[in-house]
Amino acid sequence: MKNLTYKIITPERVVLEGEATSLSVMTEDGEITVLPGHIPLASLLKAGEMRVRTLEGKEELLAVSTGLLEVKKNNQIVILANTAERSEELELEKIETAKRLAEEALKNIRNREDVSFASAAAHLERELARYRVAVKGQRRR
């Protein structure tokens, strides 16, 4: 069977590209795994972890924020994310701080405006995802 060709792109750079046998991401409708031969699809991504199984059988772990998953024909996958980081790039300490700040912000503004609550909640969710990926990546090393 043919392999998947994938590209993970953020506005700043192409984070990762290559070939894979499968790719799992969190979409708004739940987690999906894309295998070769998938029908063309465009789906919204939720902040969360993403796993790419490369040809060598290695698993790449990434934290992505909101974005878009695109499955094109010929097994091409494009992921447009606002931010994406590989587990190696994540520094635990930095994230811990960010997570704490996000949690504090959440506590402070609960019961206030819905809009800012939603944005703080999204922020927290993103930081938690980055955290989980960093922890997993470290354990594996």
Binding site: P11, E12, T27, E28, D29, I39, P40, L41, A42, S43, L44, T66, G67, L68, E70, K72, K73, L80, N82
Partner: peptide
Amino acid sequence: GMDYKFEPSPIRVLDRVLPALVETMTW
């Protein structure tokens, strides 16, 4: 562009991509 399946809906996809594109063009 070809026959895509859009999840949850085409308009939501536009909602997500267009602002990101504006940001990227400004960048």
